[in-house]
Design a protein around this nucleic acid. Sequence first.
DNA 1: ACCAGGATTTGACCCATATCAAGCAAGGCA
DNA 2: TGCCTTGCTTGATATGGGTCAAATCCTGGT
Lengths: 248, 248
Amino acid sequence: MSHDDVYPASLQCGDCPIRHRAVCARCEANELDELESVKYYRSFEAGQTVIWSGDKMDFVASVVSGIATLTQTLEDGRTQMVGLLLPSDFVGRPGRDRAAYNITATTDILMCCFRRRPFEEMMERTPHIAQRLLQMTLDELDAAREWMLLLGRKTAREKIASLLSIVARRDASIRHRRTDNRLTFDLPLTREAMADYLGLTLETVSRQISALKREGVIELEGKRHVTVPDMQRLLIEAGDDSDGGLIV
Amino acid sequence: MSHDDVYPASLQCGDCPIRHRAVCARCEANELDELESVKYYRSFEAGQTVIWSGDKMDFVASVVSGIATLTQTLEDGRTQMVGLLLPSDFVGRPGRDRAAYNITATTDILMCCFRRRPFEEMMERTPHIAQRLLQMTLDELDAAREWMLLLGRKTAREKIASLLSIVARRDASIRHRRTDNRLTFDLPLTREAMADYLGLTLETVSRQISALKREGVIELEGKRHVTVPDMQRLLIEAGDDSDGGLIV
DNA sequence: ACCAGGATTTGACCCATATCAAGCAAGGCA
DNA sequence: TGCCTTGCTTGATATGGGTCAAATCCTGGT
């Protein structure tokens, strides 16, 4: 198994808290040691805004724990989520000194930051960092484009089912909390955040979730805890290709 | 002026037709000479599909002339454009051997291709290629995210106005065909393609264009030739921040 | 110049989702 | 304990944009 298989979306290593994933040969490499001196941690509480679009951003960072969102807004307040930052996701733009989006913590989060200039300088000297970043960015671009299909062409019900299946899959790939093909997980987002993600209103989100529950596609315990009795069924509701996505 | 200013989105050089832009010192560098042996050209007629999503794609490429689109489709045929390839834009995914989208020529196009493996090998050895690609990919990601805001939160009228202003701006930045603040250009897309871009139906696109014309926001000559008498007005219709975008 | 077929426009109607508004449930705090 | 706040659900109604259908406009081919 290659380094990239073990660390699909992380530049972290050494004493960075993220190392719980595994120990990795490349982490010992001195290129990364060089970053130690410019590394620092920042934490934010749920609801806090990490940075506003247009503000000066003199660091790049990786999420260590918690969830944050990237959002864009129109002047009149309409807002659209354009990215979701999960643990090990990277944020920041080598070569740009302004944030392009609002970054908001939706849970308490811890971020591992590097000062931007030293990071860029190191990137110029060590090819594999740029390559790693390129892979991650390409993955994000793919995700963004899939999301565009959802925003532009899916119905409200399909949007909800898609979001649920994404969260379910993501969750399942981390903890293996699965009995046959029942999946169970907590929604990490409020109804409003889901609406911003999907380009809907929170009322529509609520109605569609109720409908899916009524029809037995999902089961709800409280407002956040979801169990999916039949993943295949959910994927069909999502309108996705019946790809092998259920084999998490 | 740096190399990157002259070649904002191109890896092309040497005898590649794109060199009309300028002559560039870096083009002589032997890293790129190395690519000569694996370079070839392909051309497609308007309407032809370059590659289908999921097909084997053993090359990366840069558009030399013409326009192509990246689209994704749902099983029932609903389709969403997720990217627009203009001259000098790059396509292909180092590290992935399957196309993720349908690529379709909307005009006759010429592409400059490199076989994927050799390209990747070269990228591993020469840092600035990966860095260049990273910058380009980050720009695409930004564009995709702006597009997500459009798809999720803008009205049909705003979507059309946004598209028109994007095309106008893009066009103006190439040829300087501007009298005071009147801009004039040809739409490179059919109504259907615009609909796929914007997540609308072609009827709605048509109606909104008619409405903008009726209200004097744009003028039409035939179906394709547009002139914008007042760019500021169009930007307001687009619902964008009244940023300095009109200074093209 | 004439014709055929595709692209575009326009109209009538309908439906999915937004909007506005009220009520409910759970947790924090006086 | 009861009040408030926050997040969620549900209902009634409005409307933007989709759907279906027909008319018109271009354009290339003969």
